[in-house]
Design a protein around this nucleic acid. Structure first.
Lengths: 165, 165
DNA sequence: TCCGGAAGTTGGTACATGACCAAAATATAT
DNA sequence: ATATATTTTGGTCATGTACCAACTTCCGGA
């Protein structure tokens, strides 16, 4: 952060960025920074309206609670969820935005698979296997190319501001 | 292997399978059994006409020769390549067939990415990241849906017998 | 209010993948 | 035949994702 090229942003242009946009830009990752399991956790939390318990996640993903406990701590360290020991798990604002992307990515990818003859359920499962390795940039291009569809196979697709850039 | 349901194949139908088909069927994996790095090795060996040296692979993938040496041993154990210590690396018949699939998968996936606006090089790199997690079944469906294209972006696509099934 | 069982955490282990280094072994080329 | 280049071996390490056992904390009922 020491050598930020401040000159790149002319003073007269600086205020054309609103705080929200700056936050968005800072938050935007390439979409490849989360491991597959963490992606599943975030999507699940977003889909179920978050505020889940460790045990619920453990049952849903058929893993030991201790496994969930540890991964949840990592997600909390990453600032994507909040979790006090023995407490509930819930998405932060940033985690929510990221989970929105993860769901959009999943649904876009599952959707295009159905265009190639995969059945709904099959497309969903297939997408789940590889989606973690598909970059945000690629997703946005596919999304734009499809005209930002709003209907996926396993849920509706919501488009955050910025995805069409 | 103890409890194979021999009854499932009626004696009068058994000989309708030729040895080649049986071999094919036995060899056909779901396409998800190789780690990303191993996939890269096999594709490279197939593309460069195999019979490579460890050092070449190490340079090409920018990793330590010792890393290559170990992974190569694993591929040899899996029966996909032959490799005597200090000798050349080359694909077995099975390895060649599998590498053909890996190349077809890569090129099919890169191809469809270009249909969504990704540039050639970009599509190739993107595909390389996630292709290891895309099943043979899905690839075959996409392939069939595209009418078994023969021209990919980073090479021609060859279709083994069986891919259109 | 206290207590016991349920829920969650911690610490340890395990396995796969894939990377590195240093040292030993082998091959090759002069 | 020996020096140099290549490869292998044996360690170590990091990441991701699991498990188990033991411990801690929480909560609801008597």
């Amino acid at each position: 952060m020491a050598d930020l090229p401040y000159e790149l942003v002319e003073p007269q242009n600086f205020f054309s960025f609103c705080a929200h946009c700056i936050l968005q830009m800072m938050m935007q990752s390439d979409g490849l920074d989360l491991s597959p399991r963490k992606v599943e956790y975030l999507k699940y939390l977003r889909e179920t309206g978050d505020c889940r318990k460790i045990g619920e996640l453990a049952v849903h993903f058929s893993v030991d609670p201790s496994t969930v406990s540890k991964v949840v701590q990592e997600l909390a360290s990453a600032g994507l969820i909040t979790h006090r020991p023995y407490g509930r798990v819930m998405l932060t604002r940033e985690g929510t935005l990221h989970a929105e992307f993860l769901l959009r990515r999943h649904r876009i990818l599952a959707l295009i698979l159905t265009h190639y003859g995969l059945k709904g359920e099959e497309a969903c499962q297939e997408a789940s296997r590889f989606e973690s390795y598909v970059s945000r940039g690629a997703v946005n291009k596919i999304c734009r190319s499809l005209g930002h569809p709003t209907k996926g196979i396993c849920g509706s697709i919501s488009h955050e501001p910025g995805c069409e850039l």
